[in-house]
Every structure is written in structure tokens, then in C-alpha cells.
């Protein structure tokens, strides 16, 4: 039971994507123009991650390791098509808002990364918890980044005007440059926090972000060293 709890909670802070494990940057940058979009994208990713982790863990003994990446892609693509159809049926405005980034969940490193790094080696129950935890962490991060950009860039939060009028919204923050700069500053803040905890001699301190190359932690990119 302790292990299950650990797998569930690691995605929420210790390995929080995409702020601690820099994975899945494209949707992180692109859809976080508002808190609502971030939340919607996050919900889609939770669904895809949980179902694909479930299927990969279920089939992990059947899938031959030589063609495992192709199998993971097919599984992920199937789930993504399901999400696309569900969104068209029940959340059409959100589907239009997220646009091309819904089908692109297939190539989000986080899906294949978790399939390769966790679900292909662990039992079904733990894999589902891992997917759920990682997905929740991703959603929280996206909602936070979306909320930040929306408040500072448009002066609203979840579409409602913020109750103070102390500053002029900087519309650049909801455009492309704002996404890169906000995320850069958040990652720098994470680095600063990591160094601070490391200096306090906290034995539980996670490794510095510097060591994580944005692509090296991605399961699929390891494919380049294909055997």
C-alpha cells in the first residue's frame, strides 16, 4: 500500500512534469494561454496516460521488446483518437480551442516516456496509479502556468475578470514569447528551490534540473540508441 501511495504522489511534486521532469513542452507552451485551456489539456492527458499505461502494463509480457516502441505508439494513438471523438461529442468548444494539439498528444513525450520507463516494467495497478499521478501533476502545472499567463496577460482568471485593477495586463504574455519566458522563469525558480533544499542538507532533495536534458529523460528519444 505504501508503494502504491508513493507511485501516485511522486508525479505531484517529486517528479512533477513538466517543471521537474522537462517532458511534453509543446502542449505546455501552446495551450496555456488561459487556465481553462490548461485544465482541459491536462484532463485529456490524464485520460490518455491512465488508459495507455493500463494497456501497456496489461500487454507488457506479450509485446516483443524489439517492436515495443511501435506498439506503444499504436496504443497511445488509439487512446488519443478516443479522446478526440469524446471531446468532439461533449466538449466541442474546448476541442476547437486546443485545435491541432489534441491529435498531437500522441507525440507528447510524457505518454511514451511513462510507457517505456514505468508501465512496461510494472504491474497494472501501479502503472495506472503512476499514470494518474503524473497526469494530475501535469494538469496542475498546466493550469498554474495558464492561470499565471491569463492573470498577467489578460487580467482574467478562468474567464472572470480579476477583482483588482492595479496593473495593465501585458498582452505579450498570452502570445508566444510569454509562454517561453514564463516557463523559463518557473524552471529557474525550480532550480533555485532545488539548490536551497540541497544546501540545507535535505537528504530527500531531488537532483538538480540542470542534469536533466529536456530530451534525455524521454523514453522514446532513447530509441536513438536502438539495439
Amino acid at each position: 500500500m505504501g508503494r502504491a501511495l508513493k507511485e501516485l504522489t511522486k508525479g505531484l511534486w517529486r517528479e512533477l512534469p513538466p517543471f521537474r521532469i522537462v517532458l511534453g513542452l509543446c502542449p505546455t507552451l501552446a495551450v496555456t494561454t488561459s487556465a481553462k485551456n490548461g485544465l482541459g489539456m491536462g484532463a485529456a492527458v490524464i485520460f490518455v496516460l491512465v488508459v495507455s499505461n493500463f494497456l501497456v502494463a496489461l500487454l507488457r509480457k506479450i509485446i516483443p521488446s524489439k517492436v515495443r516502441i511501435a506498439c506503444f505508439i499504436v496504443i497511445a494513438a488509439t487512446v488519443v483518437v478516443t479522446v478526440e471523438l469524446l471531446m468532439q461529442a461533449y466538449a466541442y468548444p474546448l476541442y476547437l480551442e486546443l485545435g491541432i494539439f489534441v491529435p498531437l498528444i500522441v507525440v507528447n513525450c510524457i505518454i511514451l516516456g511513462r510507457a517505456e520507463a514505468f508501465a512496461s516494467k510494472n504491474p497494472v495497478f501501479l502503472s495506472v496509479l503512476d499514470g494518474l499521478g503524473m497526469g494530475l501533476g501535469f494538469t496542475l502545472s498546466l493550469t498554474f502556468l495558464g492561470g499565471l499567463r491569463e492573470v498577467l496577460g489578460a487580467g482574467t482568471i478562468f474567464g472572470h475578470a480579476v477583482p483588482w485593477e492595479a496593473f495593465e495586463p501585458m498582452s505579450i504574455l498570452v502570445k508566444a514569447p510569454g509562454a517561453f519566458i514564463c516557463l523559463g522563469l518557473i524552471l529557474a525558480g525550480m532550480n533555485a528551490y532545488n539548490r536551497w533544499t540541497a544546501r540545507r542538507g535535505d537528504s530527500d532533495a531531488p537532483k538538480a534540473l540542470e542534469a536533466i536534458n529536456s530530451c534525455s529523460s524521454c523514453g522514446l528519444c532513447k530509441l536513438s540508441g536502438r539495439d
Binding site: L187, A188, G189, N191, R195, L209, E210, I212, S214
Partner: peptide, 9 residues
């Protein structure tokens, strides 16, 4: 703290 990914972003 800005070395690596943050400054690149």
C-alpha cells in the same frame, strides 16, 4: 539557477 534549459527558454 538559469543555466541549461531556463536560459534557453
Amino acid at each position: 539557477v538559469f543555466r541549461g534549459v531556463p536560459i534557453a527558454l
